[in-house]
Design a protein around this nucleic acid. Structure first.
Lengths: 137, 137
DNA sequence: TCTAACTTTAAAGCTCACTTTAAGGTCAAG
DNA sequence: CTTGACCTTAAAGTGAGCTTTAAAGTTAGA
């Protein structure tokens, strides 16, 4: 498979694919007699994995360390640990956001119950202070 | 509050706080007679919001569009709108995080589903092929 | 055979999110 | 009144993650 086809299949630009090779992230490539790159079909899978990893918050360097040149030489335990750590990071952030959301929803209900007798600035301060405390945890 | 104290309180560097001001992200700042920056305590809250938003994948430009310039200047109706907006923002963050988490969890599930009689190389190929198919959609 | 659409390279350029540098001004303690 | 820890600025530098450029070679189709 030439680079153009791989680019179309993965939705990535050819320059990006060459860049990943330059930095040693995508090693699954050979050269034809004419100098053109030639990719095995696993390259498509590898690139999809790279894109997924990036979307999940891995840097290219992290992915380079996690994904070996040879897919079968995969560091199983290491990869699982890294994935689990990322999931935990996300769960922590989700918990924080859920608390903030709950706080805001409660306060919205409170404000709806109170007419114009309370000072707006005080209300704002109270709301934001509570959010700040949650974020500081 | 001077910039050094705000930096300590938020755990951010002073240069980062100045940078956020430069790009128009943190507008809650005044100047003392000596030229020193002076922050209201709400600035700490605002910075915590910025950090949270960034952790959830928002760019500084997105946050700039999302966060109000002056927290204490909110009026009653505006406050309610802003809070409701913030809840929606949080829901957006949650959706983004859930997507990332889902991606990772799928990968972990695939690895866990490994049959005992399958060796590492085959398993790696199977998992990665599966991911490739999912990502192609 | 021509030509349009590929492919190659190295190097430079770009955006984002900052940090560092340099050269100075302010302030509280001793 | 000096010392050192703060604060100020503009401008340059950094690193990640690319894209663009330029100048060339290759190939598939009419």
């Amino acid at each position: 498979m030439k680079i153009g086809e791989l680019a179309k299949r993965t939705g990535l630009s050819a320059s990006k694919i060459r860049f990943y090779e330059d930095i040693g992230l995508l090693k699954m490539v050979e050269r034809k007699a004419n100098g053109y790159r030639s990719y095995p079909k696993e390259a498509e899978v590898a690139l999809n994995l790279i894109v997924s990893g990036q979307q999940a918050g891995f840097s290219l360097d992290e992915l380079k360390a996690l994904l070996p040149a040879d897919l079968s030489g995969w560091q199983h335990a290491q990869l699982i640990d890294a994935l689990k750590q990322k999931v935990m990071d996300i769960e922590q952030l989700q918990a924080k956001l859920a608390e903030n959301k709950q706080r805001l929803t409660e306060i919205l209900t409170e404000i709806d119950a109170k007419p114009d007798d309370m000072d707006c600035a005080d209300n704002a301060k109270r709301v934001l202070t509570q959010m700040g405390l949650k974020n500081n945890k």
